[in-house]
């Protein structure tokens, strides 16, 4: 780095699916963020965000108490949370939003927290990793640090719904109807990002849709994928939510099983995985686990010549 730049410290909230099922995404986040000046500290003893299908669907008091438990961890570390999972991000932000706008709720949660030796004030905010990369680091700085590039590859982006809506609570884009953060971040890695008609459609993977009516949920996702195939030259899909990642891989396998042929095979990456690969980290660590083969992208990474 040419000039002395101030480092930023954030408390990393890993969620559950990422560390348990796709820890290579966790590795990619832990590897890539410090290179860009974002120091991550661990959220020791964090618990479920809580997921919308759990306490938020059963009881607001227990939701707020669980949010308060988690928020107290970032507050103790005197920094904001950084989150990748869309649901964790939205649940934590909504939890914080409820608490800071309702003194009674805040007081009650602190009563519940008191015997645990914890306290919540709302001083730590909840930030999404794509927002930190887009707003704090910026595409230009990312582009200047690359050892490898995605040049020559086409991608499409999947914005996590939970980072767009409701924009007043969770948003960071200038327009939630025309978001651009993830596109600019992927373009910073050298790829061409193709837009398509169903870009802003939900992946459909969260909540109860897949559980309650899987047949319709699969058809819903198929409309998105058919639009990608018909309207773009996508070599990969970049997401920034663990549910999008897991669902957009799994559903392609389901389409193929139904068809009896491998028609849907677009590799899906978490953005931090693409970033970590372009920063030179080992694919065996930062991109090790997938259900749709990634070789077509991994074999196309282009070395970037160091600037004189």
């Amino acid at each position: 780095m040419k000039k002395e730049e101030k480092e930023m410290q954030l408390c990393f909230f890993p969620g559950c699916n990422t560390p348990a099922i796709r820890p290579d995404v966790e590795r990619a986040i832990r590897a890539s963020m410090p290179v860009l000046g974002i120091d991550l500290v661990d959220a020791d003893n964090y618990v479920c965000c809580p997921a919308f299908g759990s306490f938020p669907s059963a009881d607001e008091e227990a939701w707020m108490a669980t949010s308060g438990w988690n928020l107290s961890i970032a507050e103790q570390k005197e920094c904001d949370f950084v989150v990748q999972c869309g649901s964790c991000y939205s649940s934590l932000r909504m939890g914080r939003d409820h608490l800071v706008h309702d003194a009674e709720k805040m007081a009650h949660v602190n009563e519940l927290l008191e015997p645990t030796g914890r306290q919540v004030t709302g001083k730590s905010k909840v930030r999404h990793v794509s927002e930190v990369l887009f707003r704090e680091v910026g595409p230009e700085k990312i582009a200047s640090q690359l050892k490898k590039s995605l040049q020559g590859l086409h991608g499409v982006v999947q914005y996590p719904c939970h980072t767009l809506f409701p924009s007043e609570v969770v948003g960071f884009e200038e327009s939630p109807r025309a978001p651009q953060g993830l596109r600019l971040l992927v373009e910073a890695l050298g790829a061409t990002v193709d837009g398509y008609s169903r870009e802003l459609d939900c992946c459909g993977g969260a909540g109860g849709f897949m559980k309650s009516t899987p047949e319709q949920a699969i058809e819903f996702a198929r409309a998105k994928f058919d639009a990608i195939l018909a309207e773009t030259k996508a070599d990969f899909i970049a997401v920034s939510c663990i549910t999008c990642l897991m669902h957009m891989e799994k559903v392609q396998n389901t389409f193929n099983q139904q068809l009896g042929e491998e028609q849907y095979k677009i590799p899906v990456f978490d953005y931090n995985q693409l970033l970590a690969l372009c920063l030179g980290f080992d694919p065996k660590e930062v991109s090790a686990i997938c259900n749709v083969p990634r070789d077509p992208v991994l074999s196309h990474l282009v070395p970037v010549k160091p600037k004189a």
Partner: peptide, 23 residues
């Protein structure tokens, strides 16, 4: 603390160069 089994996949995490999670 979670709906998933977080913090028990020690071997997989080690193979990826990840620390033990203080869960």
């Amino acid at each position: 603390g979670f709906t998933q089994a977080v913090g028990v996949n020690t071997e997989l995490r080690e193979s990826l160069g990840l620390p033990q999670l203080h869960t």
